[in-house]
Amino acid sequence: MLTYTLRRIAVMIPIMILLSMVVFSLAKMMPGDALSGRIDPTNSSPEYISAMKEKLGYNDPVHIQYLRWMNDILHGDFGNSFIHKMPVSQLIGLRVYNTLFLTLLALFFTYIFAFIMGMYAGKHPYTLGDNMIATYNYLGFALPSFFAGLMAIYLFALKLQWVPASGSIGTGVDVNTIAFYVSKLKHTILPALVLGMLSTAGYTQFLRNDIIESSRKDYVRTARAKGTSESIIYNKHILRNSIIPIVTFLGFDIGGLLGGAVITETIFTYPGIGSLFIDSLTNRDYSVVMTITMMLSIMTLIGNLIADLLYGVVDPRIRLD
């Protein structure tokens, strides 16, 4: 297992270098730069823009710019955000906890609901309840998150006024008081529910199908013949086997932890990595865009690695050497 892990990590290095090249060249191929938005006679001038371009090194050959960027990154410097006028690492640091909180909460909802619904549907296939769950799943697949987000805001925030409509924290609360955490939760629960409930569909369907398939297996029949109670059969014998495919999802989820909420964050004006990413893209804030893209790519690689390792843990038949 250890050698397998090391081997995988070694393979990741050339992939990352390749990734960095792709990310860099895609970013540079975008038309415009951070200064395009400054074409405004009331607030700047052509002289300022050309002087800044020179200063930021936009006029250097592309490969020089790439090497400089890589060199800085290897020294732990992700550059400065031109738009936000602060170091990128600091900027991301300000936001990363919001996003982690949101996505972890969303993941929590996803798993809870997926397990409840998936197990119910798998245990009672082709009943009314199963059909309703299936309908919900199709809706979950079909509904775009911006639409679901706006509907949820309209209903729960504007009409019922249960939760605030936007932001990650209320005004007038001091850090690290109980009111602070309550406010934080109140602000995060709606986007987390929208994010979590929409991705429930895939998990539920997987779990359901696997449970149905397993329930027809020989070992289940044997268990039944021995007189084992239905609930033990489903919760112990079948569920353990059916969790295995879900583990694949978990790997992707870890990869998506930081970037999976781009649209939801924007709709809820939730200041996380996702909304920062969108914002930086429209402003052509290269250093931020490239850092976030690299970060997400690396997270995905690590997520996949974790998923593969977890296979070995949950399924003793898989040996990783």
Partner: peptide, 18 residues
């Protein structure tokens, strides 16, 4: 309080006084 909101919510937030 200077607050950032999503543009699509302007109508609703004005209506309920937020």
């Amino acid at each position: 309080i200077y607050k950032i909101i999503d543009a699509d919510l302007s109508n609703g937030l004005l209506e309920n006084g937020e």
